[in-house]
Amino acid sequence: MKLEEVRRILDGEVVSGSKSLDIEVAMACGADLMSDVLAFIKQDALLITGLTNPQVVRTAEMVDVKAICFVRGKRPGQETITMAQKKSIPLLLTHLPMFEACGRLYKNGLPGCSEAE
């Protein structure tokens, strides 16, 4: 699924990396515990999370996450944005809570990490 479609489905906005809206995410993972992201996520995934600190970007970098979407309208600080730009990881923001964001993307055909090849 293209990032632009993710943005549209979640009625979201682009925080940084607006030039990258045509990249593809292969699957999604929703989590707030970074150790679980490290343990379970596969590469080229969209990470959906309620946390906005720079370590979220660092975690994403370690496991080659394609893009990050922050939920509940929580806007990341400048440090997080700067790091994401440096690592070329686009950031989205949606006002939906995690449950609703995951539900809508799943309904639109985006698989989870246990289903995707």
Partner: peptide, 18 residues
Amino acid sequence: LPTFEIVGRLHQLGFRGT
């Protein structure tokens, strides 16, 4: 299942997060 998938299925059963 991971969060994304179980939530996806709950959503399909009609549950909403808002």
